[in-house]
Amino acid sequence: MKDQPCILVLGGGGFVGTHLRTALVARFGDGARIINTTRTPVDAGALALDIRDTNAVAAVVQREKPTHIINLVGIAAPIEARRNPALAWELHALAPDRLGRMLLQEAPDCWLFHVSSGLIYGRTALDGKPVDEQALLDPMDIYAVTKAAGDLAMGVLAGEGLKCLRLRPFNHTGPGQTEDFVVPAFAAQIARIKAGLQPPVMQVGNLDAERDFLDVRDVAAAYATLISRTTDLRSGSIYNIASGHAVSMREMLDRLIQLSALEISVDLDPSRQRPSDLPRIVGCVKSLMRDSGWKPAFSFDQTLHETLLYQMTAAGGSVDGGDAPS
């Protein structure tokens, strides 16, 4: 990219957004204009903006004239989408559709990066093979179906002339993620045991499910890399953002306990024992690597180690423990 971009980040106040700004600065330097927005800013440098207010978004677009918009807005955890399906439809599908149509009219040269989810493949992943971008979308819950609807809407708009990439990240984790997600939830229990706040027994649910985990910093780096390559990419292209490898919940927990260097027993909690509707899901990332040159920089053990250290610090305990992974 010859000229420095102006990047408008929608929903930049969340877990991914905090890492995305670092990745954008690393990729483009201080010369790039990065406009971070969130519905309720806690950072003085962020702009208050709600994607549901299309007129307000249009005003920002007209004023700032971004070259790229990254839409990170969404409900983070599938369980929250089940609790509020109307909000899931609005944030994941209806508001993004209005955003795309507004850009076609007001800023046709601006690229929209629409962040969807690998969960939209749903039942197609049941055969256990890595799913590529041409795989059938067969979502299995309200979170995934609303994400799929927004993704498909972007495909239609790309056919009408919208400059758009559809990004499908699989599970991503790392330091700073909340305990609503499995890796920090396990790490937080270990941290509380380390700090003497919990007996050395972990309560867990189903450990048989296998997921494709990627470090959030690698996800953010993939987004930044694609921005730098937009002049070489075809509008409407779809990219899985994943590691290409599956890890079971059991293996992940065993590795966290090993990293902690603690003696911890694991109890299966019947109240958490629910068979997974999707036993295994893995993403194929050949297209992303081929078209952008991106590849992951963090090993899964590095991600686990740093997430565990983050949780130990949060629990107020000592952060000494197992050796850091090489």
Rank of each mutant, 00 (worst) to 15 (best):
A144D: 03
I227N: 01
L126D: 12
V216D: 00
A158C: 06
V247L: 11
G321Q: 09
V201Q: 13
L91F: 05
S117W: 03
A297G: 11
L256V: 05
K194Y: 06
L152M: 14
D277I: 08
W111Q: 07
E179P: 07
L197A: 14
L94K: 15
Q4S: 12
L278N: 05
R123F: 12
V183T: 09
A86F: 15
L253C: 06
Q105F: 15
P139L: 11
N206G: 07
A125I: 00
L262I: 04
K65D: 12
H245E: 09
S260F: 02
P175I: 06
L87Q: 12
G17F: 07
C110H: 09
G316L: 06
L262G: 03
W111S: 06
Q105D: 15
K295P: 03
A58P: 04
E251P: 04
D232W: 07
P175M: 10
A314G: 09
P85V: 06
T40Q: 12
L233A: 09
A220D: 03
H68S: 09
P200F: 15
Q189K: 05
V73F: 08
G161S: 15
R234N: 13
L288K: 02
R274H: 10
H92P: 07
V182Y: 04
G174L: 04
L165D: 01
G118S: 05
L278S: 05
M312C: 13
H114N: 14
L136V: 10
I120K: 00
R166Q: 12
I238S: 01
A185I: 10
L253E: 06
F15I: 05
I281G: 00
G174R: 03
L10Y: 04
R192E: 09
A46M: 10
S237R: 00
G150H: 04
A26R: 14
L167P: 00
N84D: 15
S265E: 14
R52G: 07
P270K: 01
H245K: 08
I70A: 03
D208F: 09
K147D: 02
S276A: 13
R83L: 15
N71T: 07
I227H: 00
A153R: 05
T307F: 02
F113K: 02
H92E: 10
T37L: 01
G118N: 02
V319K: 14
M249A: 07
D212A: 03
G236N: 05
F113R: 01
L104K: 08
P200D: 13
L278Y: 02
L167V: 11
H172S: 10
L103M: 13
N171G: 10
A261N: 13
L278E: 07
H114Q: 15
Y121D: 01
N71G: 09
N206Q: 14
I34D: 00
R21L: 14
K129C: 08
A93P: 05
P175S: 11
P139T: 06
I227A: 04
N55G: 14
P175N: 07
V61H: 08
E179A: 13
L72F: 10
T124H: 10
P5W: 01
Q177N: 13
E80F: 14
M154N: 11
A76H: 13
D138Y: 12
A242H: 00
L47D: 02
R272L: 14
A58W: 02
F298E: 07
D53W: 06
L112D: 01
E160K: 10
E90V: 09
K147V: 06
